[in-house]
């Protein structure tokens, strides 16, 4: 079972995506409501991949990603940024902040799963 961490403040989105991923019966989805807790759980649980919302109160996705990539314990975990912002440049900024992939909300579920599988395969 692959362990995923989903960092997201919107409860409906957490409910939806966690359930859809777990319905596939090959993912276990851990959840954190903000960047601060996300980083703590990532360090403690060492998930195989992190899905992170960029806009969150407190420590947002940008900052959390920078912390995850700065911490030797979590540095190697692939991060997929999810954002409802579609402005030009958001993707580039997310990748620059250290994210391995970027996808827009509302999510295209099949495409997201394909991206997750691809990043997991690339892992050494």
């Amino acid at each position: 079972m692959t362990k995923l961490l989903y960092v997201e403040d919107n409860d409906d989105n957490v409910y939806m995506l966690k359930m859809r991923l777990e319905l596939l019966e090959r993912f276990e989805v851990l959840v954190a409501p903000d960047g601060e807790k996300g980083c703590a759980i990532a360090a403690a649980e060492r998930p195989d991949l992190i899905l992170i919302d960029l806009e969150m109160p407190g420590v947002d996705g940008w900052e959390a990603t920078r912390r995850l990539k700065a911490n030797p314990q979590t540095r190697s975990i692939p991060v997929i940024a999810l954002s409802a912002h579609v402005l030009a440049g958001t993707r580039e900024r997310a990748l620059a902040a250290g994210c391995d992939e970027f996808d827009t909300k509302p999510i295209d579920f099949d495409r997201l799963v394909a991206t997750i599988e691809r990043l997991l395969k690339a892992e050494p």
């Binding site: 859809r20 409802a84 909300k105």
Partner: peptide
Amino acid sequence: RTPLNAIIGLTEM
């Protein structure tokens, strides 16, 4: 977009 994500995702599911 944020609530739409849930609406579209959940109905699809």
